[in-house]
Design a protein around this nucleic acid. Structure first.
Length: 370
DNA sequence: CACTCGTGGGG
DNA sequence: TCCCCAAGAGT
C-alpha cells in the first residue's frame, strides 16, 4: 500500500469531484438528499445492480412514500413490493428499522454513522453512505466499488473477501475524504467503480484519475483487488408437490428461518430427507413420500411425476433440482396438520412469488397446458 | 470469523 | 454450463 501527500490528496479530490460534477449518473434517488430516499436506495442496491433497482425503487416510493408509511405497511404488501429482488431479509429489516425510527427515535433520524448502525439492516457501508450523503458526515462508505477502486489507486493488498480488511480500507480512505463534500466523494467513487474502474472491462487509460492509479501506473492492475474465490453451490434435490382442487393450489408456508423464509410456495420435500436407501428405485422413493405425507400431515396424496427435466434454480450457496409431482387432492381434506392452505389461481398475483416458485408454476402450466 | 441469504447479467 | 460480479448485513 502507498500513501499520498496532502498536496496529492487535494489534487485527487479536485479531479474526482470535477469529473463527478460533469459526469454523474442521473438516478432517481439522486434528486435531493432525503435520508429516506438515500436509505431505501442503498438497501435495494446491496448486491444488486442499479439497472435492476430503478423500477423497484420508483414503485416502492409511490407505495411507501415515508418512514411512517413503511412502518405501518402490511408485510404481504412489503414482500410483494420486494418480489424478485432477492435477499428478502433486507425488506423485513427495512420495516423493523422504520418502526425503530418511529418508536425509538421519535421519527428523527440519527445523523452519525455510528448511530445509524443501530438500525436493523444498516451495517458499516450503508451507515457511511447515509451519513455522508444525507447528513454531510465525512466518513467513507466502503462497498465493493470502494474496495476495488482504492485497492487499485493505493495498491492495497488486503484480501477484500476477509471481514478484517474493511478497517484497513476505512483507515486508508478516511484521510482522503473532503470535509465539504463527503457524500459526493463517496458517490463519485461508486460511479468511477462502475465505469472506468469496473471489475471487468475497466478502462484505466481514459480514467479521469489515471494519474492517481498506482496499480495502472505500475502495470499491475489485473492484480487488484485481491479477493479469494467463493465456493460453488451445493446441489440439492427436491420434490415439488403441485396439488390442485376446486379451492385452488396447495401452498406451504416456508419456515421462519433459512432460505426463502416465510414465503408461500408449492410444498418442497428434500429428497435426501426421505427414509430410503440411497439405491432405492424411484418407485420406492415416491411411495415413501406418499407414506410420509399421510403419516405426517394426514394427507392422502397420490403423486404422478410430470414430464420434462427437473426445475433448476441456483442460489449463492445451493443449486436446487426440483422434480415436479402432480397430485389431485380433494378440497375437503383436513389441512389442520399441514402448514399450508389452498390459494386460488386468481389470487396468485397478490401473493409474492419467489423466482423458483414462478419457475415451478411456469413449468406446471407448460407441461399440463393447464 | 465463516457462513448464510436471491436474483440477473456477462464472459 | 459455469464462473464471477453487483451501492452488504446478520448470525
Amino acid at each position: 500500500m502507498i500513501e499520498w501527500s496532502p498536496t496529492k490528496i487535494a489534487a485527487f479530490q479536485k479531479t474526482l469531484l470535477n469529473w463527478y460534477d460533469h459526469n454523474k449518473r442521473d438516478l432517481p434517488w439522486r434528486h435531493g438528499h432525503d435520508p429516506y430516499h438515500v436509505w431505501i436506495s442503498e438497501i435495494m442496491l446491496q448486491q444488486t445492480q442499479v439497472q435492476t433497482v430503478i423500477p423497484y425503487y420508483q414503485r416502492f416510493m409511490k407505495k411507501f412514500p415515508t418512514v411512517q408509511a413503511l412502518a405501518v405497511a402490511d408485510e404481504s404488501d412489503l414482500m410483494k413490493a420486494w418480489e424478485g429482488l432477492g435477499y428478502y431479509s433486507r425488506a423485513r429489516n427495512l420495516q423493523k428499522a422504520a418502526r425503530q425510527l418511529v418508536e425509538d427515535y421519535d421519527g428523527q433520524w440519527p445523523t452519525t454513522a455510528k448511530e445509524l448502525q443501530n438500525l436493523s439492516g444498516i451495517g458499516p457501508y450503508t451507515a457511511g453512505a447515509i451519513a455522508s450523503i444525507a447528513f454531510n458526515q465525512p466518513v467513507p462508505a466502503v462497498d465493493g466499488n470502494a474496495f476495488r477502486v482504492f485497492s487499485r489507486l493505493l495498491e492495497i493488498d488486503a484480501d477484500i473477501a476477509k471481514p478484517q480488511s474493511r478497517r484497513i480500507f476505512e483507515k486508508a480512505i478516511q484521510p482522503l475524504m473532503p470535509k465539504d463534500r463527503p457524500g459526493d466523494f463517496n458517490q463519485a467513487i461508486m460511479d468511477l467503480g462502475t465505469s472506468y474502474m469496473s471489475a471487468t472491462n475497466y478502462d484505466s487509460e481514459h480514467s479521469p484519475v489515471k494519474a492517481f492509479n498506482q496499480a495502472y501506473l505500475d502495470g499491475v492492475e489485473d492484480h487488484y483487488p485481491v479477493k479469494t474465490k467463493k465456493k460453488r453451490p451445493v446441489p440439492v434435490k427436491y420434490f415439488g408437490l403441485i396439488s390442485r382442487s376446486e379451492k385452488g393450489f396447495l401452498f406451504e408456508k416456508r419456515p421462519s428461518n433459512g432460505i426463502l423464509s416465510g414465503f408461500w410456495m408449492f410444498p418442497l420435500i428434500k429428497a435426501d430427507e426421505l427414509p430410503v436407501k440411497p439405491a432405492a428405485s424411484e418407485k420406492t422413493v415416491l411411495a415413501t413420500l406418499e407414506k410420509q405425507f399421510l403419516e405426517t400431515y394426514q394427507l392422502p396424496i397420490h403423486v404422478k411425476k410430470l414430464a420434462g427435466q427437473p426445475v433448476s434454480h441456483t442460489f449463492t450457496h445451493q443449486k436446487w433440482q426440483i422434480i415436479l409431482l402432480e397430485t389431485t387432492l380433494s378440497s375437503q381434506v383436513d389441512l389442520s396438520f399441514f402448514p399450508g392452505k389452498w390459494i386460488p389461481e386468481a389470487e396468485f398475483s397478490d401473493v409474492a412469488f419467489t423466482k423458483v416458485q414462478s419457475k415451478m408454476w411456469a413449468r406446471y402450466q407448460a407441461e399440463t397446458r393447464y
